[in-house]
Design a protein around this nucleic acid. Structure first.
Lengths: 342, 342
DNA sequence: ATGTCAAATTGCAACGTTGCATGCAATGTG
DNA sequence: CACATTGCATGCAACGTTGCAATTTGACAT
């Protein structure tokens, strides 16, 4: 007779077998019942449900995964960008919140090169998650391409320009740009600088396009734009000082991130420019940091926790087979006009 | 005859069986060989290794996990605190970096209440990870207690006051406090305010104790301390304004976080206090944000990415059975004295 | 040839789960 | 009363892996 006792269930783990013995039913019946088998007698189903609850049964992930291929894992591929302050924490907070009470776990992999397909390829080849969330999506993002080709469930935070539709959730960047431009126009600005650093995301293009359109509608000059693309925070700061001295100094600034807003403000303030007087500012707010620092700054808020919740909702629907159709949503910007407050 | 074809390996997944067929050896031999069975002929081992590589074999996680109980998962329990800017991103970056090329995946669960044992309990009961990393550790952290009792592998970012030793990695808070006090003493400060908000962590106690000692040694007054415990950033900002007007205004400030430094600075600067002149400041730096904003501020850096790498190293050693003895390390603070620069 | 012994390899069962095919009462039909 | 039909429940195999027990192989001595 064999004695084969490996580690896992050394201590009395509750499995289907435990429930079967407790109820006097067969293992198959218990399994069927817990998955809601409709051919079972109501009495039986109740009995099983009661026993499962009493014993504190939780299906073994390895067993399920081995048998069905379902991992009950969602993978978040986390971009290394630091321009959106507190982005990672809030995104994970949101996803975690949406996953509360579900069988899903969250797997996080940092992405070391922007839009690298390494992690995605690994996940697809080894079927190590049921679905993927990516952030900082690009217009022709190769990660999206790869998952679309493989017909693998995913959502992107951000849109793409691909012909084949896919699930996404995105901040309404165009609405943000328009709101910001109109706010500055209302303040009487005529030369507006768009401070935006990262041109590898779709977000960049959406903002730039909408910015130009809105500026044109409002008779605002936008020639200074190119001067801030791709600058590091330190360079951004230097740019602030340089700008303050230049002849064509802008009277309005729009920042697409807090990191950049902080850096530029550092430069401008050091140069003695009066914020809210000589120069008006609107920035995209994702954390609570700047408000403590500069209490009367106009901003437009993007809710990252909410984005995490929504991305998770969409992805789960997709995994459950929902058609891509309804799985594309935009988050409306939330204006926080504070510069008129006392 | 049965035909039982579930989802997972519909497409030709490479398993031990594949290799067995390719090499003409038995499945058991292949398994044994890949795990480095020493009773096998060298020739056989080479043949198996070659085939495995050629076919791109990766062990199935579910299979291994079911059989051995080993999950190849590390769990990070992520505190919701936002005072250390960019903490979550850097910690995950560090852990991810240390996990590159290993079979381990990183599971992240946000913790909704400080030091809640819910997540830990779940992990212990369902053996859903091989080891746990916790952050923002408290002196009598119930999470630590629980894992020590269960003899479950974990590392804490931060020390505890428990009698039973456990693996940890921590920032050398005492060294930070001492460095900061001495720096301010060197600047001629006599009344120093310690701005620290979170008294549920061990870190808090370590800093406070060392701060008092160092202050006493340097003949510095520290009576203002209690006034900043538990304040929110917004209140901290108000406190800055209030302080600037008070009779016993400090001439030196030490901040244990960037969030608090920013908030207090916001208040002080709005009140017209000259930073680096009327008041000197030293803060604990974890991100690159403040340097762009206030370029000539003294700080002491804590490397969070490095902490992630180190925590992972310690945890893996612990999982592999290393005794707790050597698995306790401290990170030395890195002073960044900038206030004298031009 | 036969037996002994060590070296090298393999068969088998099991981890927990699911889904098909089958079993078995009880009921309905000719 | 034989026979199909229905309603419920169960046996069995398989997912990929590992560890033990057992078997085969080859070398060597008798």
């Amino acid at each position: 007779m064999h004695k084969n006792r490996p580690g896992p269930s050394a201590k009395g783990r509750v499995t289907l077998k435990t429930i079967a013995e407790a109820t006097g039913l067969s293992l198959s019946t218990v399994s069927l019942s817990l998955r809601g088998g409709t051919t079972l007698k109501q009495e039986t189903r109740d009995k099983v449900a009661a026993a499962a609850k009493a014993l504190g049964y939780v299906p073994d992930r390895a067993g399920v995964r081995l048998r069905t291929g379902k991992t009950n894992v969602l993978a978040l591929v986390l971009d290394g960008a630091e321009d959106s302050i507190d982005f990672a924490r809030q995104m994970i907070q949101g996803i975690g919140q949406a996953l509360q009470g579900t069988p899903y776990h969250l797997n996080v992999t940092p992405e070391f090169d922007r839009h690298s397909t390494d992690t995605i390829r690994y996940i697809l080849e080894n079927r190590t998650a049921d679905g993927v969330i990516i952030t900082h999506t690009g217009p022709r993002d190769p990660r999206v391409q790869m998952m679309v080709d493989a017909d693998f469930p995913f959502v992107s935070h951000g849109r793409t320009e691909f012909f084949t539709p896919h699930p996404y959730h995105d901040f309404h960047a165009e609405a943000f740009a328009t709101l910001a431009v109109e706010r500055l126009a209302g303040k009487g600005c005529h030369r507006v600088l768009l401070v935006i650093g990262d041109d590898s995301t779709t977000n960049y293009h959406n903002i730039v396009t909408a910015f130009h359109k809105a500026a044109a509608r409002n008779g605002i000059e936008t020639t200074l734009l190119e001067r801030t693309v791709g600058l590091t925070p330190a360079e951004m700061r230097a740019k602030g000082i340089e700008l303050s001295r230049s002849a064509d100094r802008p009277d309005g600034v729009i920042c697409d991130s807090e990191m950049r807003a902080l850096a530029l403000l550092g430069g401008l303030m050091e140069a003695g420019v009066g914020i809210g007087e000589d120069v008006h500012l609107v920035y995209k707010q994702t954390s609570g940091i700047l408000p403590t620092m500069f209490p009367r700054l106009d901003s437009v808020r993007e809710d990252i926790v909410g984005a995490g919740v929504e991305l998770t909702r969409l992805l789960r629907l997709r995994i459950d087979g929902a058609p891509v159709g309804g799985l594309q949503t935009l988050a409306e910007p939330q204006p926080q006009w504070r510069s008129n407050e006392p």
